[in-house]
Each structure stands twice: as C-alpha cells, then as structure tokens.
C-alpha cells in the first residue's frame, strides 16, 4: 500500500512543526502551510490524499478553503481541526463535504486513525466513480 500524503494547514508555526515531525515518524508524508491561500497554491501543484485544515485562520477562512478544495480536488478528503466545538461551523463544514472533525487537543493515534479512514473513503469513492 502506498504512503498517505497529508497537508496540514494551520496558522500556528509551532503546532505545524510538531505535527509535521510526529506524523513523519508514523510513516505519513507530511507537508505544512500557514494559511488557506498557500494551501490552494500547494494543492495546484501537488496531489494530496488528506488535508488537515484549521477552522479558524486569518485570511481565507477554514470553511472557504474547504469549499474551494472540495470544488477543485474531488479526490482529496478534508479533516477539519477546531479549537472549540462550534455547532455552526460544524454544520457548515460537514455539509460542505468535510470528512471529519477533530478537536484540539487530540491524541496522535486518534488523528492517524481518522487520516486513514479519510484516505480509505477517498479511494473507495474513486472506485465507485470509476465503476459507475
């Protein structure tokens, strides 16, 4: 099985550095960017299986970025990352096609499990579409 390619989008550099290192150690290919705009630029050049997207970011908001990603890259799944549970952003994110939500702080194993499930979902979806 090929390695999963993940892009983490968050405006906190310390968090990015840490999560990058931790996921790398779990055999996941990780790239990190600081905001939604950079994420879209990165995705236009490189295919990514799963995007971990912070809900609250300056500039392009998490939800706006999510909408763009879902519109342009149908084979990429998005997991939203949120500092606090918010129903409104939850409903908006999930109805716009976010695969899952994860609340900070989280355990790395929990995140990893969700990344794997999201990746499996994307692969299955591709197969369904290919077969249809």
């Amino acid at each position: 099985m090929s390695r999963i390619r993940v892009l983490v989008v968050d405006d906190e550099p310390d968090f990015l550095k840490l999560i990058g290192r931790r996921l790398e150690r779990r055999n996941v290919d990780v790239d990190v960017v600081n905001n939604g705009q950079e994420a879209l630029e990165f995705l236009s050049k490189t295919f990514v299986n799963v995007v971990i997207l912070d809900v609250r970011m300056p500039g392009l908001s998490g939800i706006e970025t999510l909408k763009e990603i879902r519109r342009r890259y149908r084979n990429t799944e998005v997991i939203m990352l949120t500092g606090h549970g918010s129903v409104e952003s939850g409903i908006e994110g999930i109805s716009h096609g976010a695969y899952d939500y994860i609340l900070k702080p989280f355990l790395i194993d929990d995140l990893l499990e969700r990344i794997r499930a999201a990746n499996e979902h994307a692969t299955l979806k591709q197969k369904v579409r290919g077969g249809a």
Binding site: V87, I91, I94, S95, Y99, D100, Y101, H121
Partner: peptide
C-alpha cells in the same frame, strides 16, 4: 455506511434538539 454523511445527519438532529 458512509461516515461523513451519517455524521451530517447526527449533527443536524442534535442541533435541532439543542
């Protein structure tokens, strides 16, 4: 089942209840 779709359903119902 399709987890993200079912999550959407549960969140809608929970939100209505709240």
């Amino acid at each position: 089942t399709d987890p993200p779709l079912l999550r959407q359903v549960f969140l809608n119902l929970l939100n209505n209840a709240v």
